[in-house]
Amino acid sequence: MDATIGWWDDFFWAGLEVIQVFFVAMVGTVALGLMGAAAKLSKSRTAQKIASGYTIFFRGTPEILVLFIIYYGSAITLTSIFQFFDPTIKFVDIPPFWAGSFGISLIVGAYATETFRGAFLGVDPGLIEASRALGISNLKTFFYVRVPEMWRLALPPFGNHMLSVIKDTALISIIGLDELLFVAEQGMGATAKPFPFFFAVGGIYLAFSTVITLTAMMLEKRANRHLEGSR
């Protein structure tokens, strides 16, 4: 284990990278998930088709391939655009951080679309009817009745989405992001002692996923607290 001493500050910054990717990708995931769900639930055939295509593509394609397409594809495109203006430019890319975060958002967002859609449909129609029958407007019903129910229903799968995001971060090391796995590979190269490094990386990721799981459990408990004590 002492092989890794000296690398701990690298691990620290790499860990920070992972956390940053997590938050950025979560924002993207939720945004895309809500948009996708809205599209699928809308009356517009076109919107439904586009959303369908989106979820089918990103749930059926290997994550690493998605990252390759976004990163290398955008690099080639940007490079040729920039070379048009300045032929001496060799290589332009989107920083792996953004390519990776965007890629993860697209992928997990496709799963989130299904989750949010399911949560929306899972709300007991009786509750909505009761609210409308009381004279509460459509908009208020949406925010005060439907959304809280949706949140409660979406939490369990949403917790899994959060776990997916943090684990997929390791894939971004392949396209060059200096996150944990990347650092571990460098450490392995430098010390020729791979095991402690990868073990440490595993441990740190496990710590992250534990935090996420505990947070999800707490949120679920809180969201369901009005249901406790039923016989």
């Binding site: 776990l163 390791a170 002692k193 791979p194 095991f195 496990l206």
Partner: peptide
């Protein structure tokens, strides 16, 4: 289930031979 699959692959491929 709590660690990335890529990390697991690397541990087995790069790590174990060490």
């Amino acid at each position: 289930r709590g660690t990335p699959i890529l990390v697991q692959v690397f541990i087995i491929y790069h790590g174990l031979p060490g």
